[in-house]
Nucleic acid binder design. Structure first.
Lengths: 224, 224
DNA sequence: TTGCTATTTAATTAAATAATATAATTATTT
DNA sequence: AAATAATTATATTATTTAATTAAATAGCAA
């Protein structure tokens, strides 16, 4: 080992890549990108058994991608750092650029993408400071609670139609959700526009916002 | 498949990660990050048989990481885009941050790292425009030929001691090689300093320079 | 055509690893 | 001690893996 440093390094890099080489584990990573979570919650989110979830988490931990802490009888997992989100993103970007099948899914399910002209993180930050926008978080409540864009209102996709009055009037609405591939914010924007409300999507999602070092609010944030 | 777009996407992302989940394939990627190459050259670079190399290249191609073109009877491979370099880099960075074994190798073999204060790409670019530095490329000749930092002189690690007079005098020397983990540039800087020549390393290596969109020279570059 | 070279497939082997399910175990709290 | 949450152990079944050897294909040159 120690006589072939390059070989050792590449073996370790491969270990990390391998840990991401399974869809269920990628789903765990995506889930954790929203904020820390217990094993049971992760098991529900991915549809795997608890024992199975635990095994996969073990592999992610061995690859250095997640860490955990104890909270009473529960074990709470989190991504071991923001670089993991960047890595996950680089993976998505590469796949999107070069795999025909990904492009096809994008075309069929996300083709409103370009038309909805997403707003960049920097621009949203600037307009938040001006107070000229309302931000809408369409993710599940627990993910919102763990962390969200400052001042964002949480209305899940299903409730949106009934709770339109909860949105401040007269301001443009910026919607976001879990990441680049999350359809919920597309749906939200489409619905709002159908109701005559000016709305746009934020580029990517909450994990990328946080990974960019922009301010966040919630239980799972540096401040609290 | 088409009824579960998210599942399809994650399966594809996993496919890409899996392709990077094997040390030999990572070595192929690192090799190709220097510039395009034929199968035989790649086989030699990695120490694998030609047939085996071909198989691994097939997997990389299926994952959308490499493409190829024919040149006479030869097949020349190249990375399918700069994002692949960024992905490879994100992988390294994550592993470095979170895996103890990587940190140990780094500590033992690369511990001169911090002391040699690397120069950033931006700073080197600025100083190149001023003409206040000489750039030294310590990679093998063929990689240099495929592409290099504009104006760089190619002296391989082994030749350096005998060819010191080929370096212009009176300017600081900036050395670089294949990437973040390449020891050759460390050695070169150490040797130059021992000879009383002011020298520093460039951060990362040639692939990252190129991926950053900075200008390059050589046979395998946009211009030629 | 014939041969030469470079690369890709195909077929095979043997080893390793895969994911999941079930059951038992550990640790913590009440 | 009982209850809860997570991990570990064990087993099963299937798949996958990398690598070798040999055969096949494609382009080029004599």
């Amino acid at each position: 080992m120690t006589q072939n440093p390059k070989g050792t390094l590449f073996a370790q890099f491969a270990l990390v890549a391998k840990a991401l080489g399974q869809p269920n584990r990628l789903e765990l990573v995506e889930s954790l990108a929203q904020g820390e979570r217990g094993v049971e919650a992760l098991s529900k989110a991915t549809g795997m058994s608890i024992a199975n979830t635990s095994q996969h988490l073990k592999q992610l931990r061995q690859a250095g991608l997640v860490t955990s802490r104890k909270d009473g009888t529960s074990v709470i997992y989190r991504l071991s750092g923001e670089e993991v989100i960047l890595l996950f993103n680089a993976l998505q970007r590469t796949a999107e650029r070069h795999l025909a099948e990904v492009q096809q899914v994008v075309g069929v399910y996300y083709n409103a993408r370009d038309h909805l002209e997403p707003i960049s993180r920097e621009e949203l930050m600037a307009r938040l400071n001006e107070g000229s926008v309302s931000v809408l978080d369409v993710r599940p409540k627990d993910e919102y609670a763990a962390g969200h864009v400052p001042g964002a209102i949480n209305i899940t996709s299903g409730e949106l139609e009934k709770r339109l009055e909860d949105l401040p009037e007269g301001r443009e609405v910026i919607a976001y959700c879990r990441g680049t591939w999350c359809v919920l914010s597309f749906n939200a924007v489409a619905l709002l526009r159908a109701k005559g409300i000016t709305a746009r999507r934020l580029e990517d999602g909450y994990p990328e916002w946080k990974a960019s070092g922009l301010p966040v609010e919630g239980t799972n944030t540096p401040a609290s």
